Amino acid sequence: MKNFKNIFKISNILIVLLTVVLWVWNNLSISRMGVARHIHYKNASLFPKIFSHTGLIILTIILFLILIIEYIMLNAKNYKKCIVYILFVFNILSTIFMFTYDIKKIFIFYYVVIYIILINLILFFEILIKYLKKK
């Protein structure tokens, strides 16, 4: 039981650290030209066709499938549904963000999309561990 609490604490700390890193990365990309050049190079070399419109639609479908699976797991174990509601709001806002903005408006757009995916995966594995623990 104690190991599961540590896993949840570590995952929450990881979410906060990812948020801080993304915020600092965004501020550095605005204020430092070397960082901006590095981001531009990485954007051109790593993400040429991955986050196209079709790719964003597929990512959105995957995020909402994960949300449905989490809801089914929590519903089977009679947990509080507030986690799923928070994730649902987060996924709606993430979807609006992904389809409203692009690389021309936000320079670190690709990294923000990766951040959104990582947050969803971390929370999915948290709920999966809770589900398997009670089974």
Rank of each mutant, 00 (worst) to 15 (best):
K2I: 14
K2A: 01
N3Y: 14
N3P: 07
I7C: 01
I7Y: 14
S11I: 01
N12F: 08
I13R: 10
I13T: 10
L14Q: 05
V16I: 13
L22C: 13
V24D: 04
V24P: 14
W25G: 12
L28A: 02
L28I: 00
L28R: 07
S31L: 12
S31D: 10
R32D: 15
M33E: 15
G34P: 14
A36P: 05
H40C: 09
H40V: 09
K42L: 12
A44C: 03
A44M: 05
L46N: 10
L46Y: 15
K49F: 14
F51E: 02
G55C: 05
L56G: 13
I57C: 01
L59I: 11
I62M: 12
F64T: 10
L65V: 12
L65I: 14
L65N: 09
I69W: 05
I69L: 02
Y71K: 09
M73Y: 11
C82G: 13
I83W: 08
V84N: 05
Y85F: 11
Y85V: 06
I86M: 06
L87W: 03
V89P: 03
V89T: 01
V89K: 07
F90K: 03
F90G: 02
L93T: 08
T95H: 03
T95D: 00
F99T: 11
T100K: 10
Y101E: 01
K104W: 09
K104T: 15
I106R: 10
I106T: 00
I106N: 08
Y111A: 01
Y111N: 00
V112D: 06
V113I: 06
I114N: 06
I116L: 08
I119T: 12
I119R: 01
L123M: 11
F125K: 07
E126R: 11
I127R: 09
L128D: 02
K130C: 13
L132Q: 04
